[in-house]
Amino acid sequence: MAMTDTTQSARKAWLGTLAKAPAAEMARLWQGAGYAPEYEVLRAPEIGAVMVRGRAGAAGAAFNLGEMTVTRCSVRLVTGEVGHGYVQGRGKGHALQAALTDALMQSPDAAEDVTTRIIAPLAQQAHAERSTRAAKAAATKVDFFTIARGED
């Protein structure tokens, strides 16, 4: 199954949204959507670690900053789509729901509905949270002003 650049970047975006979603929110939306696709588990949910790297001076040689917990899972729907879930933290249910969502997103019949019920709400929440923090940060931005100049 060859994937065009557009579908790859779209898939990259939804997988990132699923990975960063709070597990409880993912579970709520998944249950609310009421999907019950038939599937087989290719890789049962597995908790592990990923070594997070940085760069010396933000630009130079890579170094190991420390690990983070990640849970992954892979499934295949009876209709053939293979879904992968890689999510932050130790959520086996979260990883399974992410893998199933990824698989459903590849099915032309389901993609639009899944986008509406799961991906878009998660992306909107993440965006709202980020915007709120950015707004609070903006309120703490210093406005310098000159009180008096020496030459007067």
Binding site: G48, V52, R55
Partner: peptide, 14 residues
């Protein structure tokens, strides 16, 4: 006790 899945792309602090 955790299996290592791999290493990340270096985080872009910019």
């Amino acid at each position: 006790t955790l299996p290592r899945f791999g290493g990340s792309v270096p985080v872009d602090t910019g």
